[in-house]
Design a protein around this nucleic acid. Structure first.
Length: 294
DNA sequence: GACACGTGGCC
DNA sequence: TGGCCAAGTGT
């Protein structure tokens, strides 16, 4: 693709973003890097609409990493509520502790330092550096992968997991200018989130429709490897969720007999409780009672 | 690279 | 109705 067309795509997507972006609370100028970090971890595999209220509550309760670090990890798990994947709450607590102890309570701006923190992988490290500090870095999430697969490659959807080719492509199309790169990163994600969606994309609202390789190819259906669907009913994940929900809802330790009520299959229940303890999400008190970690 | 890991909304 | 999907990470 010629340089001038790339430049045109940059301009149209950035202008679209300036015009159409959703007013998410962590995008306001006064949002701290800690607020950005919280929002990114909470939004991992979780729709932003469900994140917003929990994010506000957390930031109000724990305005800086040191505030969260001073709380019991179980409090983080409790206030995680029903966001899902509660290990994220535990890792956020551990990350806050590391930031408070090793980084003078300041969220790092270096993606390498960020990625060394618990629960922060390659995507989140790049996102925090880019969104909180304006660092020119390649941010690649599921939205970016889908938008770029369609726009530049002509595929209906990205591969099931991030490929080296996708990372290279994302790096290649990142604007050179720091300010443009910063806006581009958030703008492509936003385009994927609200227009170039996985199912039923709103192509009529797309600012780069006439540059879209997928559109030019006649919008063919996805023909890559099948994505395997996640089972839920009856799985350990459901049981773990029920056990943890019981402990969140009880505002103190729970006797074993109480936990036994949440699932009838004793063997599966025991295995899941042991797993939660192993993961540090539940603490056995040694007297047949269990609690969120202190 | 495959797999485990929560939860709820949507069509 | 139920499969699909949502700002992924760690093992």
């Amino acid at each position: 693709m010629p340089d001038n067309e790339i430049a045109s795509i940059h301009r149209r997507i950035i202008e679209w973003y300036e015009r159409e972006q959703r007013p998410l609370p962590w995008r306001t100028p006064d949002c701290t890097a800690w607020g950005v970090l919280l929002s990114e971890v909470m939004a991992q595999q979780t729709p932003v609409a469900r994140v917003a209220p929990i994010w506000a509550e957390w930031l109000d309760r724990w305005p800086t990493p040191a505030d969260l670090a001073a709380a019991a990890p179980g409090e983080a798990v409790r206030h995680w509520g029903r966001l899902g994947y509660p290990r994220r709450a535990l890792r956020l607590h551990a990350a806050a502790t590391a930031i408070a102890n090793d980084h003078d309570n300041v969220v790092p701006s270096d993606p390498v330092q960020l990625q060394a923190l618990p629960g922060i992988g390659s995507y989140t490290a790049a996102a925090v550096a880019a969104f909180a500090y304006g660092v020119r870095t390649v941010v690649v999430d599921t939205n970016v992968r889908r938008v770029e697969a369609r726009l530049f490659t002509g595929d209906a959807l990205a591969a099931p997991s991030l490929t080296a080719a996708e990372s290279r492509l994302a790096a290649t199309v990142l604007p050179d200018d720091d300010t443009d790169a910063a806006t581009w990163n958030v703008a492509v994600m936003e385009l994927g989130a609200v227009v170039c969606t996985a199912t039923n994309p709103d192509c009529g609202a797309c600012p780069v429709l006439d540059s879209c390789a997928w559109q030019r190819a006649g919008a063919p259906a996805y023909d890559g490897p099948a994505r395997k669907s996640q089972k839920w009913a009856g799985t350990d994940r459901q049981v773990r969720g029920k056990l943890l929900q019981a402990l969140r809802d009880a505002h103190g330790p729970l006797p074993r007999a109480q936990l036994d009520l949440v699932w009838s299959d004793a063997a599966q229940r025991d295995r899941c409780l042991a797993g939660l303890i192993e993961d540090g999400l539940v603490e056995p008190l040694g007297d047949e009672r269990y609690a969120l970690p202190s």
